[in-house]
Lab assay of single mutants.
Amino acid sequence: DDVELRDGDWRVELKDADEEILRAVEEAIKNGASEQELRELAERLIR
């Protein structure tokens, strides 16, 4: 699993992620995405 989400800690570690993925995830976090939404976003972007 390349995506690590810690309970109560919104730092997201994406291994080997490019800047576009990181920006998309950071934007989702700023917009108040839930953990499930972040997982789905990350899975779509990593593929």
Rank of each mutant, 00 (worst) to 15 (best):
R11P: 09
L45T: 05
K15Q: 07
L38E: 00
D9W: 01
R39K: 13
E40A: 14
D7V: 03
D18K: 08
A17V: 12
E37M: 08
V3E: 12
E35S: 09
E4H: 15
V3A: 10
V3I: 15
E20H: 15
A24F: 08
L38S: 03
E19G: 08
L45S: 05
L5C: 12
L38F: 02
G32V: 01
E4T: 09
I29P: 00
D1P: 11
E19A: 07
A28W: 03
A42T: 13
A28S: 03
I29S: 13
R44Y: 01
D16C: 15
S34E: 04
A24H: 07
D16P: 03
E40N: 08
W10G: 04
E19H: 08
I46A: 08
E4S: 11
E20K: 11
L22N: 05
E20L: 10
D7Q: 02
R23C: 05
A28E: 01
E35A: 11
A17C: 04
R11K: 08
K30I: 09
A24V: 14
R39N: 04
E37F: 06
L5H: 15
D1T: 09
E37L: 03
G32R: 02
D7L: 04
R44T: 06
D16H: 09
E20V: 10
E4V: 08
A42M: 15
R11F: 15
E37Y: 04
E35L: 11
D18F: 06
N31F: 02
E20Y: 08
A33E: 01
E43Y: 00
E13V: 15
E27T: 08
D9N: 03
V3G: 12
E4A: 14
D9Q: 01
E37G: 02
V25N: 00
L5E: 15
R39H: 05
A42N: 04
L38A: 15
L14C: 05
R47F: 01
E20T: 13
L14T: 03
A33F: 12
E13A: 14
G8Y: 11
A42Q: 04
R23S: 09
D1M: 13
R44W: 01
E19P: 15
V3N: 15
A24T: 09
E35C: 03
L5N: 15
G32F: 01
R44D: 12
E19K: 08
E35R: 06
R11L: 15
A28Y: 06
R23I: 08
W10N: 04
D18G: 15
V25A: 01
N31G: 11
I46V: 12
N31C: 03
E40I: 10
D7G: 07
D9I: 00
A24G: 02
R6V: 10
I29R: 07
W10L: 07
R6I: 12
L38Y: 03
L22I: 12
R6G: 15
A42V: 15
E35K: 06
A42P: 00
D7T: 08
D2L: 12
S34D: 06
R47T: 14
V25E: 00
R11A: 11
D18P: 15
R44E: 13
G8F: 15
K30M: 11
A33L: 14
R44L: 05
E13P: 05
A33H: 04
E26P: 00
A42E: 05
R47N: 15
K30P: 00
L14D: 03
K30E: 08
E19Q: 10
A28F: 06
D1F: 12
E20R: 10
G8C: 13
A17S: 06
V25C: 03
E20N: 14
D1L: 13
V3T: 13
E4Q: 14
L22S: 05
R11M: 15
R6Q: 13
E13G: 13
V25L: 13
E13I: 15
W10Q: 04
D2T: 14
E20D: 11
V12Q: 08
G32M: 02
A33I: 11
E13Q: 10
W10C: 06
D16W: 10
E20M: 11
D16T: 09
R6Y: 09
R6S: 15
V12I: 09
E13S: 15
Q36F: 02
E37C: 01
L22G: 03
D2Q: 12
L22D: 01
G8V: 07
A17G: 05
E13L: 15
L5D: 13
R6D: 14
L22C: 03
Q36A: 14
L45I: 10
E43F: 00
D16V: 05
D16A: 06
E19Y: 09
L22W: 12
E26F: 03
D9R: 01
E20C: 06
D1R: 11
D18A: 09
D9Y: 01
A17D: 03
R6A: 15
I46G: 07
V12P: 10
D2I: 14
V3C: 04
E43R: 09
D1H: 13
V12N: 08
L22Y: 06
L41C: 01
E4K: 14
A24K: 12
L38K: 01
L22F: 06
V12M: 07
I21E: 01
A33M: 14
K15Y: 09
R6T: 14
E13H: 10
R23Q: 11
D18M: 04
V3M: 13
R23A: 12
D16G: 14
I21Y: 03
K30G: 07
E4Y: 02
L41R: 00
K30D: 04
V25P: 00
L5Y: 11
A28T: 01
L41V: 01
E13N: 15
V12W: 07
A33R: 05
L41S: 00
S34R: 03
R44P: 00
R23K: 13
D18Y: 06
R47P: 10
V12L: 10
E27N: 10
Q36M: 11
I46W: 01
W10E: 03
D1I: 12
R6K: 10
A24D: 02
L22M: 11
R6C: 13
Q36D: 12
R44G: 11
R23E: 05
N31S: 12
L14G: 02
L14A: 01
R23P: 00
G32E: 02
G32Y: 00
R39L: 08
E37T: 06
L14K: 00
L14Q: 02
Q36V: 10
R47A: 09
Q36C: 06
E4W: 01
K30S: 09
D18T: 14
G8Q: 07
E40G: 04
V12S: 15
G8H: 10
N31V: 04
E20W: 11
L14V: 06
G8A: 09
E37W: 02
R44S: 14
E43D: 14
I46K: 06
E35Q: 07
A42G: 04
I29K: 12
D9S: 01
R6H: 09
E35T: 06
R6F: 14
E13M: 14
D18R: 06
E26A: 12
I21R: 01
A42I: 15
R44M: 07
I21W: 05
I46C: 05
E43M: 04
D2R: 10
E26R: 12
D7M: 03
L5F: 14
N31M: 10
G32P: 00
V25D: 00
I29C: 04
G8R: 05
S34P: 03
E27L: 06
R44V: 02
D2G: 12
L22P: 01
R47G: 14
V3S: 12
E20F: 11
D7K: 08
Q36R: 12
L38I: 13
D18I: 06
V12Y: 05
R23H: 10
A24Q: 13
E40W: 02
E40S: 08
E26T: 10
E43N: 07
S34G: 10
E26C: 07
A24S: 07
R44I: 04
E27V: 11
R44C: 05
Q36E: 11
R23N: 07
E27G: 05
E13T: 14
A42K: 06
L38N: 00
V12C: 03
K15R: 12
E37A: 05
S34A: 04
D7R: 01
S34N: 09
K30C: 03
A28G: 03
D16E: 06
R23T: 06
L14Y: 07
E13W: 04
R6L: 13
E27R: 12
I29A: 13
E26H: 07
D7F: 02
L5M: 14
I29Q: 13
E4M: 12
A17Y: 12
R44N: 13
N31P: 00
E27Y: 01
E37K: 03
W10M: 06
L38T: 04
I21A: 04
I29F: 14
E13K: 13
D18N: 09
R39Q: 10
N31I: 06
D1E: 15
E43K: 11
K15W: 07
R47H: 14
A24R: 11
D7S: 02
G32D: 02
K15I: 13
E43C: 06
V12R: 09
E27A: 09
A17N: 03
V3F: 11
W10F: 08
K30W: 05
D2F: 12
V12H: 09
A17E: 05
K30H: 08
R11W: 15
W10H: 05
W10V: 06
I21V: 12
E35G: 07
D16R: 04
D16Y: 12
R23V: 05
G32H: 03
D16L: 05
E19L: 07
E27D: 08
L41D: 00
W10K: 05
A28L: 07
A17T: 06
A17M: 13
E35I: 12
D18V: 08
E35N: 08
D18E: 08
L5V: 14
V12D: 15
G8E: 14
L14H: 02
E35W: 06
G32C: 03
E27W: 00
A33T: 05
R6W: 13
G8T: 10
D7H: 02
L38V: 13
D1A: 14
V3R: 13
R47V: 11
V25G: 00
A42W: 12
Q36H: 11
A17W: 09
L45W: 00
I21G: 02
G8W: 14
Q36I: 11
D9F: 01
